[in-house]
Design a protein around this nucleic acid. Sequence first.
DNA 1: GAGCACTGC
Length: 720
Amino acid sequence: MKTNRKRKHRSINNDNKHTNQKDPDEPELISRKNLKLDNNNNDKQSSKTKDIFNMDKKRNSQKQSSDNSKISKGKKNGSDLIKFRKDLPIWQERNNLVQEVKKSETIIIMGEMGSGKSTQTPQFLVEFGLISSKKGGIAITQPRRVAAISLASRVSQEFGTQLGQKVGYSVRFDDKSSHSTIIKYLTDGMLLRELLSDSLLLKYSVVILDEAHERTMRTDILFGMVKRAQEIRKNKNKIDQEDKNYEPLKIIVMSATLDTEKFAKYFNTSTILKISGRQFPVTINYASEPQQDYLDAALTTTMQIHIDQPKGDILVFLPGQEDIEILEKLINEYGTSLPPDKLKVITCLLFAALPTEQQTKVFDPAPPGTRKIILATNIAETSITIRGVRYVVDTAKCKIRKFNPRIGMESLSIENISQNSADQRMGRAGREAPGICHRLFTKDEYNRMEKDTEPEIKRCNLAPIILLLKALGIDDVLGFDYLDAPSRTLLKRALEQLFILKALDSQGKITELGRKMAEFPLEPAYAKVLIASQEMSCTREAIEIVSLLSVESIFFSPQDQREHASEMKKKFVSPFGDLITYLNVLRSYEVQKGNSEWCYQNFINRRNMKHVIEVRKQLIQLCIRMGIQTNSSCGNEYEIVLKCMLCGFFRNSATLQPTNNYKTIFSNQNVNVHPSSALFNKKVEAVMYTELVLTTKPYMKNVSAIQSNWLSDTALNIQK
DNA sequence: GAGCACTGC
């Protein structure tokens, strides 16, 4: 019998064992016993599973829609496309929808998945003559690039025009729109950027904010800015007669599930349209008692579904990569001991850091005689839809990144999801046929969950978004019309950070430097570095380092080859630390012209390196536009570029103590070099880092060796 | 001697 991989005991903070007494600033305790699975004892395992669910008693069927009309398949010609459109639930509502848009300034559309709201709404407006190129077109925002691109190409097809003409999209690095574009899909971040040069959005007569329930920081800011543009355009028409007449701005807020009352109140409207989706009923099974170990429960439940239930793939929601990899091993071990008459199991992993080729494997249908078990993070809740799923197993856990303004540190912790999130996960079982969702928590636990996930704006570092608001002319950021206002501590921290970077003056007004910084699609500290590099003649290196830091990691280390990977990494390592190490990788990558074989052998993440190259290109263009010489270089005198980095990150510095640990200079906290760093276990006098993350310990990431006297030099430099 | 939920400009 094979031995199971030991699971690490991950304990973050033993003082916060009880959820109800925990400090909201601190992550939840994560601690698990070692999971043992006896391969020769299948019966015992499956009978144990039966105890988890009271299947007969607690059966709860949730029927979302009875509209089971078939979607036409195969090659689509014009009439197929029309038939397809007519079959969408929203088609019946089109007259109503158009009338409501004519009547109201703002409407809210609540449409479930498969209702056709994202593709049809803009088309109806055009077809009913509400839009003309003279008045201004329609902008539809999406939280994700892929969604913006695929919606645009779908709609341009239905519209019978070439993509980029009447229907187009605009996302970072890729703009397929023209003067004649009247329906434009864009990422929410892209519309925020457009606000910088067109704060009243005069290019558009309708703005549609799609997927509003996701409440990204960017959509939340757009809510306020779009509402403001609508009011100003209306009032200008009243007051300023000689000024050119502004076309009124219509706002449409769309989402799957949302607190419509809250949105209606915020947007001063009472027009709410509800459109049913195309969803099959999903039966929910709750656990009969709370589960001690969600991974153990996920294993037993998954295997029991496999043994008891007819064919159909299983989707298991887990919080992170580590759990996914452990469960994969356990399921595969278990799978070898299945009776010969049962289907074989194949496992598919799905998380963001996985190379694209492996991600796309989840779309391959299960071969005959097998059942596919997909082990996924939150990525399968919103970003990726997989066909063939009939069963969902939900651990109710996900990882949440939070920013603690008091200590300026981020933390990543496993937390319970919200009810809306759980319902979204459940819906994944009923995309093509009725399904079953196994919740590894009790009905009572469900009732005690938060209704909605806390919006990003209440838990993230606000510095980037506050700088943008200031640049957009919103001086009173505390009084901004937020749908949900962030805490004063978060706001104050952001203002303070921007003041220290000299992006704001002591009155909180944006400075010339701040305006320049806001032009860059970067966090304020990085933008500051680029601007400072001009004087220090190291713009080339500064741009490259900033680009390299724009991806999660330029390395990859597959589970089974970690040692080999770290061995290969050594040849790039610089005594100056991580930033120069990354620069070395970029240099070699370019010598190799991005050769994929070279990347593979050196454990370089090619997808992320390509992104680095694109960011560099964009930053070079932006610098040129702002009159910054982009070819000034410090050559191999890396001290210069590191000093330049200090202009943005001087607060992120720590010195080595006689006790051999590091303490931050500004807040006197104990911090550690992250084990993935080139400077791990290397004792240097002082370090600068770009990120401080609390996981099992407070870890500094992207660490560079500096000298403490550089700090006073930089401080003087910054005062200038 | 650790680990990386997910996005976006």
